[in-house]
Design a protein around this nucleic acid. Structure first.
Lengths: 228, 228
DNA sequence: TAAACATGATGATTTACATCACCAAAAAAA
DNA sequence: TTTTTTTGGTGATGTAAATCATCATGTTTA
C-alpha cells in the first residue's frame, strides 16, 4: 500500500476536513488496517459480536439478513466510501445482518475504541455521522415500505433503478448478483423475478442478455416504479 | 405546569446526568415549550419542513407513512420518553412520515438550533443519541422485514406481542387503534385482520371483546410469531 | 474429463390473501 | 331526536405470485 493511496483513502473517510483535526485523523490512521476480501467472502456474520468499525475502500458489499429456511433478504448493496454495519455496532452488541463481498473488496478496519473516543470528543463529527446514518436508514426503510405493497412489475422496476441510479450511474450495466440474489433483493422468488425480467425484455423495456442490462425505456421503468 | 413536573420531564429527557451539564439542560429548558395535543390531532405531517426537536412527555403517538390511494402504513407507536421524527430531522429537510396522537398527548418542542449546538459541543451526548437512534431504527427495520415474509397468523401474533410487550407490559390491555389502523400496522387489510383475530378468539388463544384483549396462551402467540 | 453442483429458464398447479359486496352497530353530526 | 358517517363484521369471488416439477446450460471440484 503506497502512501499516496493511504492519503486518498483518508480523503474518502473524512471528506469534510473542517470537522476533524489532523491529530484525530492520525490517531485513526495509527490504529487501522486494510483487509482484502475476495468475491463471495463473508465480511461479517449475523449474530457475531461487533468489534471494529469497517469502511469500504473498494468493491461492492451486500448486506443481508438470513432467515431460518436458508432464505435471505438483501437489505442493500454498500458501495465504496461508506461504513459497514454501523447501525449494529451502535445499536446492539452483535451484528444484526451479514455482509459479504460481491466482488473483490478492500475494507478498512478501524479500532473501535479509537473511533469511539473521537466521537465522544468531537461532537461536530458525531453529528455529521448521525446525519449520514439517518439518511442511510431512511433509505433502507423506504425501500422496505415500497417493496411491501408494490407488486412484481413495480418491485423489479425498483430493482433496475437501484442498480442504474445508486450503483452504476448508467442505463447500461452488468448485474453483480445471481437471479436468486436479485429475487432476495427485490422481495420475491427466483422464478417470479425471471418471468418479470423476461416480460420487460419482450416488451422492449430493457435489453437483457445474461447479466447485461440496457434500459431501453427509462420512462416506462419509472412509471412502473411509481404506480407500483 | 408546576416546577416539579418540569423537573420530572427533564429527568425523562436526560436520564443520564453524567453526559450533559446543568448549563446545557438550562439552555434547552429556556428554549422549549410544551404543547398539548388531543386524540387524533396531527403532530406533524409527511413532506412538511422539519423545525423543532420533539419529545413525548405523555401520550401515545402513531408514526405512519401515507401512500397515494389514501392508504397508510403505521411504522410504530411512539411512547413517552422518546423523541419524535429524529430520523427525518437529521436525515432530510422534510418529515418523511406523519405523526398523530392516538390519545391526548403532551409534546415538548425544543428549539432546533439550541439542540444542534449542544450536539456539536457535546460528543458524549451525541454518541448516546446515535446509539438510541440506531436501536430504534434497527427495531423498525426488523419489524418491516418480519412482516415482509410472515403470513397472517404470524403478523397478527406480532401485533399482539407488540402491544403486550412494548406498549402495555401486560397480557391484558385495550387496543388503542381501530381495526383498520391495526391492519395498517400489521401490514394487511381490515378484513383479513378481523378474520385472524376472530380465529385466535375461537381457538381460545386470546379473549377479545371490542378493543379489550386478554392473552390466554402466550406460548401459542410466541410460537405463531416465531414460525411466521 | 467426468461427475457433481449451481444457475437460468418455463410450464402447470395451488393458495393465501386481497378485493368486492353487503349489513349491523356504534359514534358523530345535523 | 333523526340523519349521516365511521367502525366492526361476514361471505363469495378473483388473482397475483408462490410453489412444484423439470430441464438446459454453466461452473466447480474431484
Amino acid at each position: 500500500m503506497s502512501k499516496d493511496k493511504k492519503g486518498d483513502l483518508f480523503d474518502l473517510l473524512f471528506p469534510d476536513k473542517d470537522i476533524i483535526s489532523k491529530a484525530e485523523i492520525d490517531r485513526i490512521r495509527a490504529g487501522c488496517e486494510i483487509v482484502q476480501f475476495q468475491k463471495k467472502d463473508i465480511i461479517f456474520k449475523q449474530n457475531t459480536l461487533t468489534s471494529h468499525i469497517m469502511f469500504i475502500k473498494s468493491g461492492l458489499v451486500k448486506i443481508f439478513k438470513q432467515g431460518k429456511n436458508n432464505k435471505s433478504i438483501i437489505l442493500k448493496i454498500a458501495t465504496p466510501g461508506n461504513f459497514l454495519g454501523l447501525i449494529s455496532i451502535f445499536g446492539e452488541s452483535t451484528f444484526q445482518y451479514s455482509a459479504s463481498a460481491i466482488e473483490d473488496a478492500e475494507i478498512l478496519f478501524i479500532d473501535f475504541n479509537t473511533f469511539q473516543s473521537i466521537l465522544t470528543n468531537n461532537g461536530k463529527y458525531t453529528t455529521s455521522l448521525l446525519k449520514k446514518l439517518s439518511k442511510e436508514n431512511l433509505y433502507v426503510i423506504d425501500r422496505l415500505i415500497a417493496q411491501y405493497h408494490k407488486q412484481l412489475p413495480g418491485k423489479i422496476a425498483d430493482l433496475i433503478l437501484y442498480f442504474s441510479e445508486e450503483i452504476y450511474h448508467s442505463e447500461k450495466f452488468e448485474l453483480p448478483l445471481t437471479r436468486n440474489e436479485l429475487a432476495e433483493f427485490a422481495g420475491t422468488t427466483k422464478e417470479s423475478l425471471i418471468r418479470t425480467l423476461t416480460e420487460f425484455k419482450n416488451d422492449k423495456i430493457i435489453e437483457l442478455e445474461g447479466k447485461k442490462v440496457n434500459i431501453r425505456s427509462m420512462d416506462i421503468i419509472k412509471t412502473l416504479s411509481r404506480i407500483g
